[in-house]
Amino acid sequence: MAKNSPWITPAAAIARDFPAGLTELSPRAQVNLRGILDESSFMTAVKTATGIDLPITPNKVATGKDHKALWLSPDEWLLIGEGEADALVHRLENALTGQHVAINDVSANRTIFELSGPHGHHVLMKSSEFDFHPRVFAPGDCVQTLIAKSQAIVEQVGEDAFHIYVRSSFSRYVGAWLAEALAEYGAPA
């Protein structure tokens, strides 16, 4: 965390006053990976470097030991893990040498909010036009959509827990929106 720890997101100014059920997570390693899916050497190399079989099904998450991979588009994934991104970037670069790929450390791009508790999906439902009903959206799913008109990635990490990745420059606005959206449900027991 050495590199990221002095770095404060705009949401940090209001994060102390977030109601129960909403927290801003500490910065994580976020690495954007692009490559050609049809080349089997690409998938194999990523598996070697991270232990993850990249999800091919749109809007799914694959979890490995240290990292997870979110499907972003047919040739693009977001790898997320604890700590610094440098080690992961180097491992991927070594494994993918000579291949047509792009590996970028985007850890500072997005702030991560965790929304948890029984009303998490209600808050998302009223903040977005995407259908967050449990029938449609379940743990292991992720989606890129608009949350309160701001582009976001939403990942369901547990039965009642969501991670919301928003652009850092929008994080104060989205954080305030989510806090306000939670207010009508009162403090969860």
């Binding site: 749109p58 809007n59 588009s73 047919p74 036009e129 995407f130 890129q144 959509t145 608009l146 008109k149």
Partner: peptide, 10 residues
Amino acid sequence: PWCGKRHETE
């Protein structure tokens, strides 16, 4: 074709 039915605003 990849993500399925989504709202026009996306």
